[in-house]
């Protein structure tokens, strides 16, 4: 069981960003994708989630064997792919409780969703919130509206925990996360980590990886993965910066 991305070519406004990108995320593993700015890390996340601004020119993404390109974004999500947004969107007037409930019931058949009582929902929601140390007042607030960076991340992790995706892509590229927000994301990933989920953490900085121990680290450059290795690769990037990546792989792309 895996998320298998092959020969992926993606462009935005006619500019090609991903070039024959290949990556396989087996269930049960945590992968980190690192790389300099502008190398296509966020594009990968957005394209997989089906954002309409990103055009997939070629390639495939098989989620446990099923193609997800060409599907509407809501279908991709219901198949089990979750993207944690780098910049979660503010939605005034829609409470977190209602928002998550709509997302949870969208995954049920009509019978189950009709039978899904408010009591049962809040019980499940509060259990997750307690686990993630999120105060219960949170649910009455509008989605992300006026949230601090850390609160937005908490909200993303809560959604992920409630929706139990098969694969999660956390786009943390260069959101200038403060240490608090960083820890929240890391703790969320550690809580969720297990044999039933494959996780990809996209990050520019090595410091997120102080809190998460990835099984595999990939270095991305010029729209493709140029090097993969164990956690020691992240430390190397931290110590040496990205300059050597450009020197070593610049000619290839």
């Amino acid at each position: 069981m895996s998320l298998e991305i092959s020969s992926l070519n993606v462009s935005i406004a006619d500019k090609q960003i991903l070039k024959d990108f290949n990556l396989t995320i087996p269930k049960g593993e945590v992968h980190a994708i690192m790389g300099p700015n502008g190398t296509g890390k966020s594009t990968l996340a957005k394209a997989l989630a089906g954002h309409p601004d990103y055009t997939v020119n070629k390639g495939s993404a098989l989620l446990d064997g099923e193609e997800i390109f060409g599907l509407e974004p809501d279908k991709v999500a219901r198949k089990g792919l979750f993207m944690a947004f780098q910049y979660p969107v503010e939605i005034p007037g829609v409470s977190i409780a209602n928002f998550i409930r709509a997302a949870v019931t969208a995954r049920m058949n009509k019978e189950a969703s009709d039978a899904f009582s408010a009591t049962a929902y809040y019980k499940a929601l509060y259990a997750k919130m307690d686990e993630l140390k999120i105060p219960r007042e949170f649910t009455a607030r509008s989605v992300n509206e006026g949230f601090s960076g850390g609160e937005k991340k908490r909200c993303e992790i809560l959604q992920m925990a409630m929706l139990r995706p098969k694969y999660a892509i956390l786009d943390e590229t260069d959101s200038g996360l403060d240490i608090d927000a960083l820890r929240i994301v890391a703790e969320g990933v550690e809580t969720m980590r297990g044999p039933d989920i494959g996780i990809v953490v996209i990050t520019h900085y090595q410091r997120l990886l102080n809190y998460i121990k990835p099984d595999v680290v990939h270095v991305m450059y010029g729209g493709r993965i140029v090097k993969s290795g164990g956690p020691e690769l992240a430390l190397e990037l931290e110590a040496r910066g990205y300059g050597w990546v450009e020197k070593e792989f610049g000619a290839l792309v």
């Binding site: 989630a49 974004p73 809501d74 993207m83 998550i100 709509a102 969208a106 929706l163």
Partner: peptide, 16 residues
């Protein structure tokens, strides 16, 4: 898009 990305069908997302 944020709502769709959470699996909420388009019509329902619009209504929300």
């Amino acid at each position: 898009f944020y709502m769709l990305a959470r699996g909420i069908p388009r019509r329902q997302a619009q209504e929300l």
